[in-house]
Every structure is written in C-alpha cells, then in structure tokens.
Nucleic acid binder design. Structure first.
Length: 541
RNA sequence: GAGCCCGUAGCUCAGCGGUAGAGCAUUCGACUUUUAAUCGAAUGGCCCUGGGUUCGAAUCCCAGCGGGCUCACCA
C-alpha cells in the first residue's frame, strides 16, 4: 500500500534500520543490487535469537529497498556441511548418530527418519520456522553450494593465498591447534569425516591439497573443488562473502573476533568484506547469558504462547546494540509497547515508528484493542478466565462493539491472556474450606441458586447479573456477615465477599460476583459451592 | 589479556544538544447495592564521579569508579 503523501526524506530518518541501510547503500549502488545474509549453525534448532537476527536483517533490507529502490536478496545460509561434533540430547537414534560423528550433517541419516539426511531435516525445521513468520528469504545449503561448484573459483583462490590466510588465523590459536590448523578441511575419501589435519602441501596448479590421515598414515591428494574440501569456520565465512558478494551481515557480539578475522581473510581473497553489525546478546532475569543447556531465559515457544509474534518483533526492534534481559515480565511490556506504536502508526505512518518496520511499511487495518494487554492479564486473573468467552463477557462492559470477529488482534490477546491465567494464576489458587460459621451463608446461596436456576438462565445477561447479585447479598445477610451501615441499618460486610473469593475462586480478590455468576453459568457456580461445602465436611471430619 | 554493554524515581526501564519521563509500587480520591477490575491525582530524582566541548549536557568527548557480559576450546 504505497502512500500518496510526499515521499519521506529517507536520508534523515533516524530509525536504526535506515542508519544501517545508509551504511550498505554506497557499495550496493556501485553494484546495482545488495545481498544480505544470515547464517546458521545447523547443529541446533532455530531459537529466539534466530528470529531476532532474521527480523532485524529484514528491516534493514526493507529500509534499503525504500531508500535506494535497488533490488536485493536475503539468503539464509545453513552450514549443513559442518561435521557433527557430538550427539545432541534431544534426538532419537543416538547410537546411530554416534557412528557418524565427524561426518557432514548432510552425510548422516536423519535420526527422525523423515528426511534424506540429518542436515536436510534441520534445514527443513529452519525453513518451517522462518516460513511461519512469513519472512522473505532464499534458503542456501552449504553442501549444495560446495558440491555444485558455486564455491570452486573462490576455493581455488583461497588455495593460491593459502599461507596468507593461514597466517591470519595462526596468531589467534593455542600452540596445539596451531600445529594442525588449515583453512581447508578435506573430506576423508573413505570415512567421509571432515578432517582437521595440517596440509603437507598445497598445489594451486592442480587445485589440490595433500594431507595425511593421522590414524593410518596414508597420504591423500584431494581437489579443493567440487565438495571434496570444506573451509574451516572463519575461512568458510570469508569464502562465502567473497564467492557470493555478500554486502551485509549482522552477528552477535560473541563473534566480534570472528568478523574481524573473516574480514581480513576476505580482503586477502580480494574482496571488500560485507558491512557488519554487531548486536548484544540476551540475558536472563538475573543478567546471566541465556544458554540452551542452562535452560534459563525464555524460549520462542514460551513467548508465542503468551503473546503475538509482533510483540517479539517489537522487543527485537529496540536497540540491538544493547544487552537486554529476556524474561517473562518483558512480554506484556512489549505487547503494550507494540500496541501503542501501532496506534501511533495509524495516525502518522512514519518510518521512525517501530511498527512501521514490523509491518513492512504498511498500516494494519484491523481495529486497535480498546484495552491494554496488561489490563487483560489482570482481568483474566480477577475473573478466573478459564475460557476466552468469560473474558469477552467482562470486556463487553468496556467495549460493547468489540467481538472476536471485529477485533482480531484483541481476540488473539484474549486467547493469550487465558493461557497466562491457566499457566500462572490458576495453579497458585488456594481454595480454603468454608468455616463452620460461614457455611450457612454458602448453603443459603446454594439453595437460592438451585431454586432460581431456570428463572435466571432465561434472563438476558445484564438482568441475570443483577438478579444474581441480589441473591448473593440476600445469602450474606446473616451472621457472621451482618454489619451496621452508615445509616444504621444492617448490611453485608465485605468479609462475605472475601469468603466467596477465597472459598470459591481460590483467590484473595475477585470480580463482582453477580456478573461472574451470569458469565460462568448458574450450574457452574452451584458445582463450585457444592464442592466447597464437601471440602468443609472433609476438613471437619 | 582483548573487546562490548550498562550506571536516570523504591523496582524495571525510556529519553540520543533545549523546562527530567513511563509502567509497576506507595498515598489519596472517584466509580460500584458496601468487594475487584477501571479511572483521576499526589508523592518520589546531586540523571555514578571528575574534567572538557557548547549560549546550553542525562544526552557529545576524555578519564575514573562500580555492575555485568563475551571472546581467548568449537562453529
């Protein structure tokens, strides 16, 4: 949806994706196009950081497109030719995998039995993950690129400058690794293992390397082309940049040193390394690094259970160079921040607004939720929202016009709020038994609800709520809940309502109970009271 | 050892050269048949310290102090 309004002055936009786009623009204008890359180690499954990296790169790319009008591509590069180092914990057929240690992931059978190789399986998972969010990208398999010859010219070039490349890496290595290091990792012709061995000889003229199997002592001469040799990590990155002409790639700050070395190698090969962007890592609630093995922090599955993906995008948009804590409490905050930006975007579709980037420069056209997500979460616990319909019942008082059909975003938030209630609030409820003194009031309420059940169900909701509230008061108009009012008449003390919440809802606070009965159902409340009275008897016995 | 991030209200943080802000917490008030959500208001800050640039600095630069992270094995 292009805007009729005057084109913004792209050069003046301060949003960081535009600042990044301005860094790539000069070199891209020389080439007439730009190549963005994000890379993956295929040994692990896609995670919240994967989402962040692709989302952020996509925003830069989109800003680039708007600003320059030049074509661009985003390739998602999977390093699936990497050798399997250890058997992952969370897969079947571990014994089978153990027999293939050291071989490229694409040369190992799929332990899940669904794809032609373990690498192909993980690639499929990665693609499904990215597709679920609607990212626009081209998938690239390292194995395919090596075998098809797309890296051949670059590999031969690296062979020419082998010693110079090696000399860049050597000073960064410990003595023992230094002895065996080579930027080339030949695939063993018989075992298929990715070999980490020194090159005894490099033969640029024939395009081969000569090395020795440390176990058998056998010497091999292997062509560096055609997928017979893979480049070692930092050299591999540089090779890819050089061969494909990558213009932009971001990475976490743990890779700062790798970026530096890979850039140096890329220059030795003869190309300007891509514009790089370093983002900070995510920390958990206590400021510790999030690691999959520790299980701290949040998984993307958890986030998406309690909030829509747009809110995660909002979180990822904010200040990539700053370390941020990623734990449960930031979810509602991110949702509401996103909602505010979205509303602002509707009034002013400015590229300085994060929501502009999250929505690819378009303005969403469904109505804004009339309440904040924080309020929905609060309301969900207060009203014991076990089902979305209960939350909708109470929402109707704020926004009579809002329905799941007319307010799709609100509908999604309601679903999330109910899950939040189920997972975090419901388990903490403590249902106490009514005391002997309180029992008569509960019995009276039970009796009147049974008596009037059919009558109440026939009423329209508003009237039913009011009638039910009257019954609640009548039931409470007895000891120990009688309390003199300001005008001297006897009224019902708040202890009656507290007792209701504690005994029937397992909470200290709750909704106006007549309204709750109307939404929860008379029959349901009758069951609650019956259950509570039974508990009381059990406790008394 | 090398590098990065952060020090702003009680807590979590926003603010990126022009009168110190938000949410939560606290206090008070409104609303409700006397409970909740909600709404309104108030309280609350040497913007870590010391220099520098500037008419003007929370903001930019330098130094220091404090907190934390990452890389120095592998990708």
């Amino acid at each position: 949806m292009p805007h009729a309004a005057a084109a913004p002055d792209w050069a003046a936009i301060r949003a960081w994706p535009f600042e990044e786009a301005r860094r790539v623009a000069p070199r891209a204008e020389r080439k007439g196009h730009a190549l963005f890359e994000t890379g993956y180690g295929p040994s692990g499954l896609p995670h919240i950081g994967t989402f962040g990296e692709v989302a952020r790169t996509t925003w830069v790319r989109h800003a680039f497109t708007r600003m320059t009008g030049l074509p661009s591509r985003l390739i998602a590069f999977s390093d699936d030719m990497d050798g399997l180092r250890k058997v992952p914990d969370n897969v079947p057929n571990k014994e089978m995998l153990a027999r293939h240690l050291g071989r490229p992931l694409t040369a190992i059978p799929d332990p899940f039995g669904t794809h032609e190789s373990f690498g192909a399986h993980n690639n499929a998972r990665l693609r499904a993950f990215l597709d679920a969010f609607g990212f626009e990208y081209e998938f690239a398999s390292s194995t395919d690129y090596y075998r098809s010859g797309r890296f051949d010219a670059a590999l031969l070039r690296m062979l020419e400058v082998h010693d110079a490349v090696r000399d860049v890496i050597l000073p960064t290595l410990g003595p023992e690794r230094r002895a065996t290091y080579s930027p080339f990792l030949p695939i063993h012709p018989r075992t298929g293992v990715v070999m980490q061995v020194p090159m005894e000889e490099t033969r640029p003229a024939s395009g081969t390397v000569v090395w020795r199997d440390p176990d058998s002592g056998e010497r091999f001469e292997t062509p560096v082309t055609g997928g017979h040799v893979k480049a070692q990590w930092k050299a591999d990155w540089a090779l890819r940049w050089f061969a494909l002409g990558v213009d932009y790639e971001m990475s976490g700050k743990d890779l700062i040193d790798s970026v530096r070395l890979s850039s140096a190698i890329c220059r030795i090969l003869g190309a300007e390394p891509p514009v790089s962007f370093t983002y900070e890592l995510f920390l958990d609630e206590h400021g510790q690094k999030i690691s999959k093995s520790k299980g701290n922090g949040l998984t993307i599955e958890e986030w998406l259970r309690y909030a829509p993906p747009e809110s995660l995008a909002q979180f990822m948009y904010n200040a990539p160079p700053r370390a941020k804590r990623l734990y449960f409490d930031v979810i509602p905050r991110s949702v509401d921040e996103y909602l505010q930006n979205r509303e602002r975007l509707r009034r002013d579709p400015s590229p300085e607004n994060p929501a502009w980037h999250i929505h690819g420069g378009l303005v969403p056209n469904d109505p804004e939720p009339p309440v904040s997500f924080a309020m929905l979460l609060n309301l969900a616990s207060v009203v014991n929202a076990e089902e979305p319909s209960m939350l909708w019942g109470f929402l109707r008082r704020y926004a009579p016009e809002a329905t799941p059909e007319s307010h799709p975003m609100l509908a999604r938030l309601v679903e999330h709020a109910v899950l939040y209630f189920r997972d975090f609030v419901a388990p903490t409820r403590v249902f106490r038994a009514p005391t002997a003194a309180e029992r008569p009031a509960f019995e009276a309420l039970l009796a009147s609800l049974r008596d009037r059940a059919a009558d109440l169900e026939a009423m329209p909701p508003e009237e039913r709520a009011k009638a039910a509230q009257d019954l609640v008061y009548d039931a409470g108009r007895r000891e120990p809940f009688l309390e003199p009012q300001k005008d001297g008449r006897m009224g019902v003390s708040r202890a009656w309502f507290s007792a209701i919440y504690q005994v029937l809802l397992g909470q200290q606070e709750g909704p106006r109970f007549g309204g709750f009965i109307a939404l929860y159902g008379v029959g349901g409340v009758i069951s609650l009271i019956e259950g509570a009275l039974a508990r009381g008897e059990g406790a008394a016995a």
